[in-house]
Amino acid sequence: MKVIFKRTLEETLKISSIIIVIAASALGGYILARNSGYSTVPAFQYYLNGILIRQHVVVFFLVNGAVLMTIVSSISSGLIAGEVHDGTLRILITKPNSRSTILMAKILGMITGCSILMFLGLIVLYISELVFGNFDGNIVNGLLHYLPAYIIYGYIVMFFFSSLGVLLSCVAKRKVIALLPLLVIVIMILGLPIIVRITMELSGNGGMASKVYAVDMNYHFGSMFRWCCDLFGGIHGTSNQLDITSILMNTFSRMTIDMDLTRSESSSSSLTVVNNAIPAIYILIVYLLLTCINYVSSFIIIRKKNV
């Protein structure tokens, strides 16, 4: 159904979406480049790890986070509900095409459009980093090394959010009703758990907050992001460097250690280790299953929907 695919693709690639993606990624790249300097650099790897960790955070929170999640949510939630509300779906389904074909064409158009936006976001991030950062070739190679990991994670985000958006869109009569739960999920991934974690940490109950893994969507997506990075070498750094990912993504945690064992002379008696409370692969499987269930349910609903 080329014509519906094309129209959905055009709607996805609106000027406003493109501007948002470019602006956010350029800003992310600029911030990364401006904060990459160390007054004293102990080693190349230390320097590179520091930049990489911040790059991971920018990709997780901004490029493949807030921006991609919001755009995919906005487009997928309007896919059917928008046309129901505008009244255009009634005519659309009276033309000789099966409803499944219409939905499939719309989903493919949306995924293609969102893929282009995701690639655009990552490319602009890198360009911005290189333009403002003045990095040498080895650093650039190191930064580019994780691009495939970001793409894989981007697709995980895209498919999960689009499947939920499409399902809600098939049920709701207005786009906004389908969009609201998705925005709540975005907050559950990128905002609320972090605030709760920091608040409890400050009040001395940090351990408790980070143990509610089953409902901590920040941890789920953080783990899946880490899993993608692990495919291309993993996330490395010193405890201090990794602290930011512990706070913002819950992917690492501090483990108290025996000082005799490490023969550490520093005052610190803990190590930063991967937070494997729920193995990332299990989380990934559950989210992929949910994605499949959402898509299949959407097709079942649209086939019997009274318009």
Partner: peptide, 11 residues
């Protein structure tokens, strides 16, 4: 079949 509803909505 061709159908013209009572209220047609347009893009």
């Amino acid at each position: 079949l061709g159908y013209s509803p009572e209220f047609t909505s347009f893009y």
